[in-house]
Design a protein around this nucleic acid. Sequence first.
DNA 1: TCTGGGGTCCTAGGACCC
DNA 2: TCTGGGGTCCTAGGACCC
Length: 423
Amino acid sequence: MFALVDCNNFYASCERVFRPDLEGEPIVVLSNNDGCVIARSNEVKALGVPMGAPYFKVRDVLETSGVKIFSSNYALYGDMSGRVMNIIFSFSPEVEIYSIDEAFIDLSGFSPDLIISQMNTLRANIKKWTSIPVSIGIGPTKTLAKIAAERAKKDLSLVGVCMLDEASKINSALSLTPVGDVWGIGRAWNKRLNANGISTALDFANQRTELVRKKMGVTGARTWLELNGTKAYGVETQPDIRKSCVSSRSFSKTVSSIDELKEAIATFAARASERLRAEKMVAGTVTVFLLANRFDENAIAQNSSATIALDSPSANTAEVTKCALAALTRAYKKGVAYKKAGVSLFDLSSMGSLQPNLFSISPDRENRAHNLQIAIDKINSSPRAVRDMVHVGARRQKSNWHMRQDMRSPRYTTSWRELACVT
DNA sequence: TCTGGGGTCCTAGGACCC
DNA sequence: TCTGGGGTCCTAGGACCC
């Protein structure tokens, strides 16, 4: 059996940890740029505000209903996530951290009779030690555990833990689950399946396997197997080696000038390389992409990108920035109103296994660049430094493309300056 | 006026190999 | 008239996840 531990309304719950006065109050959390609703407390779900709704469209409803609105605070959510995950690891080492708010546990070592009570304890401990509420679903495959977790959330009589261990329970849960809510069935397949009269997970599970394989490829076939109780996915306790690293932003206003784009791209290049260095990795290629308004059919044709290989794999901000700016010049089209831009790093490898460049002109110079980078990182991470105190000159501190983030809560757990005070 | 960011996997088609 | 068989690698696009 597998368990899925799923935090309830995770970001909204995080906002309540240091604001107990918000317990029972309606809360939403907005995406970067305060663009969309990406988390809702139960009270807001009850108001009928959909997931992903553009803020400007639901602003009036939220305000008249007295909903508390937060910009996203990833420093807080990331840290709270780590605390929840640590508690789960204390129950079993066979854990896969699937996302910021979800983890699978391989229960093969657990005695079947004790699973429910142990999961109840886990749930209670997480609540007690972090104040984050979770739901736990248990099933013979990961996909069924996902469905069980949804049932645990929706059916209040289950008190947060749902185990699907018998055919009758599984069938009943499948019949209550819309096919589009199944893990692996997204928007596109949901539409096509519905058009063919398949509306619940049970309808889908009852299709002929050859038909599913033919129409939906191997991914669809795996989902079908998992719904029918055959394991297609295991618990991956080793995190995958990362294959790419992206830093990107939508602009609050469109940007057409190459100089402004340069500042943005230099910032993204720095962010992405910084993240890579933290994971002791280096990149082989740098891609810059420029996107026009994605809600305008005609504008999408103006999207462009360019990829350039680094001379030798690197995560050095200066190197990556230089490369990214060159790629920008290639991708840039004059006169286009860009809405979003970003830098992706590909061909990643670990720093340790680095192959030196056979044609390197000056290994000594590369060494010095490396040491400089270490010194800069050290300065910037010192407790007294403001964010990015030392940075590449191509960036600028204040620009009009920067993010809107007007309603962010304090970084209670990761910044000394923003520590909660009891008075 | 306004619409997130960061990922992975699969497939089809083209170019290439012997 | 007729034109092999078996591969790999790369890329773009589409689908999915949170």
